[in-house]
Amino acid sequence: MRRSVAWALVLLTVAGTAASATARRGTTAAEALQPALNAVVASGTPGALVLVEDGTSRMQVESGLAELRGGVPLRAGDRFRAGSITKTFVAVVVLQLVREGRLSLDDTLERRLPGFVPNGRRVTIRQLLAHTSGLSDYVADERFLRLTASAPRRHWSPRELVRRAERMGPTGSPGETFAYASTNYVLLGLVVERVTGTTIGEQLRSRIFAPLGLRGTDFVPDAWTGGRYVHGYVPSVHDGIVGSLATARDRSDASASWAWAAGALVSTASDLSRFFGALLGGQLLPPRLVELMRPAPSRRYGLGLAAFETPCGRAVGHTGNLLGTVSAAWSTADGRRRVVAMTNSYPLSAAADTAFRRLLDAAFCRR
């Protein structure tokens, strides 16, 4: 399960049935990407999709199934859990509050959440956004992950999640080193709620979803029921070997409360692309704050955006996985070229992991 933490930053066949695939007609780009997409499904995931936009053209390709039971085909517009891509959305809300003068990047946790965490006087909003707070990641606790699997409908409060991290002890001194931790964004969600007097879900909807017209996007921290959506599957793992889909568990109806502000977003490929285009194009924040979000040339992470090295240069964006779904949103620094990809099985086998990364590289680098 440690791989789930790594997949937040790096890239990172249905039994008895040939993978079905459809592409938007008349697009040679789609035809060129179809083999790479099919390879992800053939490596052992139910389905996969990819969207590519570059300002002048738009292409979507999908392959395989959204749900194994009943053989429901995957469609390009289907909704799925976006996992840690949620963090970029939450970072935008925090930085909008900074722009409005309601928060400062140098505010301490002790000021905004008095008595909430030990050493809160030394941890700042900037450090939480950049994952340099020194706080441990509760998701790295194997015992905690076993609890979420054994009690999938249990509701976890944000305070419980932070307490889990505290019991693990610090990873270092605040501001000292980068250590990715969902704990940081759970705390940022609590800060937003304390400053605004409303929920993080309401802030996301009023500040981002509604203004950008993201009709397929919502904040869903509890079990997701009703409507059409991509089901996420968790294969068994024995001695590091990922099992087949025949024994995989459907986790799509489990609670995502344990991810909360760090990962409970539900979205579509189209909505995620629109969001990153708007963000990097300056529609959500002034240029100085967008620049802070982008990782510096020598860094892997900025204030809510990660960097990814590709064969054709650096991409910025975020990746994530949650409840059997893996997703990635990559963009050029100016937001003009964007790629969103998703596959609905996790952990990925070595072959599937390689195939998904190749799909992303092929989609991002194709001109």
Rank of each mutant, 00 (worst) to 15 (best):
2 R>E: 13
7 W>Q: 08
14 V>T: 15
14 V>N: 15
15 A>G: 14
20 S>G: 15
21 A>C: 12
22 T>R: 15
29 A>N: 03
32 A>Y: 08
34 Q>L: 15
37 L>V: 11
41 V>L: 13
43 S>E: 04
43 S>C: 08
45 T>G: 07
72 V>F: 02
76 A>D: 13
76 A>R: 09
80 F>S: 01
91 A>W: 06
95 L>G: 09
111 R>D: 14
117 V>S: 12
128 L>D: 12
135 L>D: 06
137 D>Q: 05
142 E>K: 08
148 T>A: 04
155 H>G: 09
157 S>G: 04
161 L>Q: 06
162 V>I: 15
170 P>K: 02
170 P>W: 11
186 V>L: 09
186 V>Y: 12
186 V>M: 14
187 L>S: 07
189 G>R: 06
189 G>T: 05
209 F>E: 07
218 D>K: 00
226 G>W: 09
237 V>D: 11
237 V>W: 07
238 H>E: 14
238 H>Y: 12
242 V>F: 09
243 G>L: 07
249 R>L: 15
259 A>P: 08
263 G>H: 10
278 A>L: 03
282 G>V: 14
287 P>E: 14
294 R>T: 15
296 A>C: 06
300 R>A: 08
305 L>W: 00
306 A>Y: 00
307 A>D: 00
319 T>K: 00
320 G>V: 01
322 L>V: 14
331 S>L: 00
333 A>Q: 04
362 A>T: 07
